[in-house]
Computed example of a mutant assay.
Amino acid sequence: MNKPFLLLASLLFLCFSLQVRAQQYSFDQKIALAGDGGYDYLSIDEVNNHLFVSHGTSFHVIDLATEKQVATIDGMQGVHGIAIVNEVNKGFISDGKGKAVVVVDLTTFKIIKTIALPEEDEDGIIYDAYSKKVFVFNGDSKNTCVIDINTLSLVKTIALDGAPEFAVANGKGLIYNNLEDKNSLKVIDTKTLEVKATYPLAPCGGPTGIAFDAANQRLFTGCRTNKGLSVVDAITGKVITTLPIGAGVDAVVYDAETKKIYVSNGDATLTIIQQKSADEYIVIQTLSTQYRAKTMALDKKTKKIYVSAPEFEPGTRKIKPGTFAVLVYKPA
């Protein structure tokens, strides 16, 4: 190997190493929130610059400009997620214990309508801009309910034959949904409202969070059983590679601008992965967070990461009263 090539390779490696170090994340602050109930998804309304934090029977609303709570949406029975639909200025909340989707105004935060559903355990929920419909995924009923954003009514229920976890839309008429108990992924056609395909995810076991790279047609699936992040070809369903992550993964986020994948884990770690090409990836940081801080949102403008969790009694899942908070991490 000639000396100029060795020098070039060394310079490229040095540049990459410096870039990675410059983008390391660190703890920024803690936003304390009242209440001791359970907690689940976090979502960001990019238009209004608000962070929605699921917590027990309510949602906290945080202004991302000040990182202060500005509202609380109360009166539900057991909330999980919220689908943000700015074109109608509405948020659609999955109320799992209430067997309903609760529709709220995104600026006043008032409840507009409660849509009662005949299914059990309304959990993950997303908006598909292509079909103008909201899809709520029902864990115990093993299906998804489709809701029209204008009539605020149930359009159809689609059987999934497995327990659905996170889902993501490709913006062109397809939704990809992980089935945690089947180690597989369902492809839903939002034009026909039918399941189009099923992708086996081996070696991925217990798939939960999922994110999508539109430019490269890649899916990123967090897998609890084997503690891995699987990269999947969205067109063929082929598992391309699997990277090591922490235990108890829940959420996965992809940032197309920086080409980073963020994976929040229940073992007090957050794995950050750099995409080098469509099929090449490298873990660049394992960020220390907090025990069971497993759900997450990424502010695509500031690149800050938000995770939520209370503190627990050592060695237990007993929550210490008054400790629930959103933890904020910022890039260097």
Rank of each mutant, 00 (worst) to 15 (best):
C204P: 01
L179T: 01
N183S: 13
A197F: 00
A163Y: 09
G205N: 10
L179D: 06
K196Q: 10
E194C: 02
L201E: 10
K191P: 07
D181C: 10
L193T: 09
A197Q: 14
K186C: 03
A163L: 09
G171V: 08
V187N: 13
K196G: 04
P200D: 07
Y176L: 13
V187R: 05
L193H: 12
P164V: 02
E180D: 11
E194D: 15
P203I: 03
I188C: 01
P200K: 14
A202T: 03
Y176R: 11
D189K: 07
G205R: 09
K172S: 09
T198D: 14
P203T: 06
A163S: 12
K196Y: 01
N178P: 06
K186L: 01
L179H: 06
N183V: 10
N177I: 03
A169M: 06
K196V: 03
V187K: 06
T192N: 12
P200E: 07
T190R: 04
P207F: 07
K191V: 15
K172Y: 02
A167G: 05
A202R: 08
A197W: 03
V168C: 06
G206D: 11
K191A: 14
V195Q: 08
N178A: 12
A167Y: 04
V187G: 08
L185H: 07
Y176P: 13
E165P: 02
L179M: 08
F166E: 12
K182T: 02
A202F: 05
C204F: 02
L201M: 07
K191L: 15
N178V: 01
C204Y: 03
D189T: 14
A167D: 10
Y199F: 15
G171D: 04
P207Y: 11
N183P: 05
A167V: 03
Y199D: 04
N177Y: 01
A167N: 07
T198W: 03
E165T: 01
N178D: 13
S184E: 15
D189E: 08
F166D: 13
P200S: 11
K172C: 07
I188H: 02
G173V: 09
K172W: 00
E180I: 12
K172E: 07
S184V: 00
K182P: 00
K186H: 07
L201A: 03
I175A: 11
C204L: 01
V187W: 02
T198V: 01
D181W: 14
L185Q: 13
N170V: 12
L185C: 05
P207R: 11
L179V: 01
K196W: 00
K182E: 05
I175L: 11
A197N: 14
F166L: 15
P203G: 14
A197V: 00
G173F: 02
A169T: 14
G206S: 09
G205Q: 10
P207T: 10
N178R: 04
I175F: 03
L179Q: 13
